[in-house]
Amino acid sequence: MKRQWYAAPYALWMLLFTLVPLLFVAYYAFTDGSGGFSTDNILRIFQPGYLPVLLDSLRLSLYCTLICLLIGYPTAYFLASRDFSENKMLVVLILLPMWMNFLLRTYAMMTILENNGLINMLLEKLGLDKVQFIGTEGAVLLGMVYNFLPFMVLPVYTALKKLDARVIEAAEDLGANPLRVITRVIVPQSIPGVISGVTMVFMPAVTTFAITRLLSNGMIYLMGDMIEEFFITVNNRNAGSALSLVMLALVLISTLLLRLVNPDTREGRA
């Protein structure tokens, strides 16, 4: 009975720093500059020019999630299938880059990719033509994958690590070839890990900002950048709040969709 109070600090934290600010955002989203009720700012997303930004955000974050899955799953499988003494290898491989702030990492990425950056200097030394990276979608995508990849590897790794080795042995004993073991036993068992990995990558990816500015000089312009612009440059917090709310609804919908495909939650086991 008393145990429920253990959660009180976190509940209070949520109330003060999640729920109350959210109410403020909702209030500003549905009012205009003078405080009167208005839906103009919410409907702003349907004005010309705004939807493409939303679609770009969705498209790039889907690409990012997919690439993270393609790179992250085999990595997690490799790590889980071997016994690295006390996971030290995992810490070094996955967590080391996370010890540094993402902004610093992205700045570093910027100096590597610039026209006179590390890669282009190397190309020049080799007598090859320079390549313009900054400003391309590829550069932004690279920055996103670079920053969010650990969020895919860790949950998949955890799911695969929990897998009972005897189940695999049983499959092999019953005559399944290695490919069949992977497709019929390992992958299905790791789906919950994949789902949480996808969620943890997609959510920060769809709200990306700053990475875009640094790696595209602001030429690739996503929802996060637009919201920041309304708050900082334009000083219109009503529009900024409304677009944040749209963003929030989008994240919520995609989380619900992911819950539908997750066998854990679908069968009410979670």
């Binding site: 705004y50 637009m226 612009e229 440059t233």
Partner: peptide
């Protein structure tokens, strides 16, 4: 100014 600015920023 705000409208002009956002139209410029969103232009593609």
């Amino acid at each position: 100014y705000e409208n002009v600015w956002m139209e410029v920023r969103l232009a593609r």
